[in-house]
Design a protein around this nucleic acid. Structure first.
Lengths: 216, 216
DNA sequence: CAGCGCATCGGGTGAACCCCTGATTTCGAC
DNA sequence: GTCGAAATCAGGGGTTCACCCGATGCGCTG
């Protein structure tokens, strides 16, 4: 039977997977945080890791990076509520062997786990399309955004973070200026610095970036 | 034993709740869509409905509104991955008796359900703070964008929704025009109509609005 | 004190955005 | 056959964004 390690910050969801997949695969361990996950995976050596994408402290990406180096034989199947292209692409680039959304049924998930264990690559049907698009190269889709990392965020000054927050909420420069009692020009300067430091090129990307990180 | 009806579009999560709460409460039914949920709740008359906030076809809000009128005695406990203020406030305004995040443990969830069944109001500790803030008075923030409702969304024509989707992804008018094989001017018209119908005033607010609703 | 990061402003440019009026075509409904 | 909704496009004007250049103060550090 395929051995599986479960990483998800929602205890309830882990319980669901355990209950539904119990008969088809062997769950050898589970963790709620990236740190616990890394330790647990190294200790239990599962064939497949079911990995939630959105978690505190770096999410699935952090787990993938740390474990991937040490145990290259481990297969990762990303499991997420998000079907956003950035998430999918980031996980795949980091070495995940598949990506399915949490809308998946128990049967399909069990199939996916077994196929990944067997060496296959698995995607939710809806995702397969733009995964191919993304890797074809020149994205017929524009702008795609060289995803800013959380490390970039640390470079922001306090004032810049303040402006970032308001930008993310959709405020116009003028409104931000009024809110912070500074001139529109100063807001422009901060905004420009934020975009440069996060390596983004427009407010739209900034809003998306912030929304993905629950910055409100 | 408290009777509970389960509404969540993730089968895996429902299974988790069922498995973990099985001993403490009686799950009398479950549904994956608002439509099924309304029918099922009316038929099974549970004491408490565990309601996921983010779902296709209007989410938990739709269920709450439709069932709330017909069965005023039913208690709703919102259960969401999101801890965004808008979500919480919207659900509470619509009549939910509590709001907890999916990070909750099985024990705490069982407690919450029983307390809601008994007439209490339950919030995740982290949420209690800004729920009070939100109801203390007006936001003091500018422009605030009289939040567009999902009802407004229904007024959009098919083409407008298409444009909305691309706007939300951060495409420039020019790029949308190229994508849809129409002129920039037509895109402007559609965009303008979308903003008016959703009662928003800029595409930045639109980006935010769409991100909050997971429109990609 | 000289240097540096931070925050504060300004001027100017080109592009993108938002709105207004007005027009045509198509298509289904009355 | 007419009416209205939807989609298409154009012209024009004002606003906002993103970036370029520069400048001034303030506080900290070597």
């Amino acid at each position: 039977m395929t051995t599986v390690y479960l990483v998800d910050d929602h205890a309830m969801f882990r319980a669901g997977v355990r209950a539904e997949l119990g008969g088809r695969v062997e769950v050898v361990g589970e963790a709620a945080t990236p740190a616990d996950a890394v330790a647990g995976i190294v200790a239990s050596r599962p064939q497949v890791v079911l990995l939630d994408v959105h978690m505190p402290d770096g999410g699935g990406l952090a787990v993938l990076r740390q474990v991937g180096e040490r145990l290259p034989a481990t297969r990762f199947l990303a499991l997420s509520v998000s079907d956003a292209a950035e998430d999918v692409i980031a996980l795949i680039r980091a070495g995940a062997r598949g990506y399915v959304t949490k809308t998946i049924s128990a049967d399909d998930l069990a199939d996916a786990v077994e196929r990944v264990a067997g060496g296959d690559v698995v995607f939710s049907p809806l995702l397969a399309g733009f995964v191919l698009d993304a890797f074809r190269d020149a994205p017929a889709a524009p702008s795609v955004a060289a995803a800013a990392t959380d490390a970039d965020f640390d470079q922001l000054t306090p004032r810049e973070r303040e402006v970032l927050r308001l930008l993310a909420r959709g405020y116009a420069y003028k409104e931000i200026a009024a809110e912070l009692f500074i001139s529109v020009k100063t807001v422009e300067t901060h905004a420009s610095n934020v975009l440069r430091k996060l390596r983004l090129s427009s407010r739209h990307q900034l809003t998306r970036w912030a929304a993905d990180r629950r910055i409100t």
